[in-house]
Design a protein around this nucleic acid. Sequence first.
DNA 1: TTATAATTTTATAACTATTATAAATTATTT
DNA 2: AAATAATTTATAATAGTTATAAAATTATAA
Lengths: 146, 146
Amino acid sequence: MPMCAEHSNERLSRKLRSAGLRPSTARVHVLRYLDRNRNHPTVDQIYRSLLESLPGLSRASVYNSLAALGRAGLVRPLAMDGNELRYDSSVGDHGHFRCRGCGVIYDFDLPPAVSASAADGLQGFQVDRHDFLAWGLCPGCAGAGR
Amino acid sequence: MPMCAEHSNERLSRKLRSAGLRPSTARVHVLRYLDRNRNHPTVDQIYRSLLESLPGLSRASVYNSLAALGRAGLVRPLAMDGNELRYDSSVGDHGHFRCRGCGVIYDFDLPPAVSASAADGLQGFQVDRHDFLAWGLCPGCAGAGR
DNA sequence: TTATAATTTTATAACTATTATAAATTATTT
DNA sequence: AAATAATTTATAATAGTTATAAAATTATAA
């Protein structure tokens, strides 16, 4: 049974090219990692994981790739606290909830009306991107009484 | 005509006490600064400005004060990019828009329905706080054709 | 009021995430 | 295949934040 790595690479390369980006090794791997890991990883998590299959990969290259992917709209950054930046490959309209108990960041659906009516308060502004962020306790941690 | 500095201090001290915080010099000054500067200042901006009237003030003290004020719900942190943290003394429900042209962060009203219906997607979650963030170009910068 | 305890601040150092730089490499174009 | 442009690497520098211990302040109790 053949591995489909080449096919997957081809698909990702095409995705990068059609977004106007060269499909460099680092970019393909970063994009694939984010496609497969929908848990909003930090830059460090991405770097450490890719390093196993790409010895010699540099942190700067991961930062560069993420910045390029972000500019192209293929991924989006997520800053829920001041320090570390996380990345999300789900580009569709959804919000983010961070649990202060377990630290997990959950995606949640935004009714289309939310984004639309938020825009009502932004007449005359040109909105490139938006996000609805919430903090608190997830059902599990709330039940555990934290 | 008398200055009202003492009155102002008294008011802020009471505000701190009723929030369960000791009205230390640093906290009073940080809170007053945020009350008067609604432009979402960075920690560094707060520190540098207070240093003029409070020589000897340390950065750590500003960080400590802001953390205490944040826990008490008197101010709220705002992270619109990965690096620097800003603070907002408007605790009411509103969103934030950052212009990539001039860098200004604008407040905008959120129709009450927005927060309510966003909560629909968070059944079972206990939401402590939330924020609607948007990025793009403000009317002025959009007009200037950036 | 004085003594005691708890909290807060200061000064400093350490840490972490990110950005900048220049040389080497890689990909694209001619 | 050679030339050009873009990307990556390795390293250093920067910036923002957190940790630590001693000193100072504030609150509580005698």
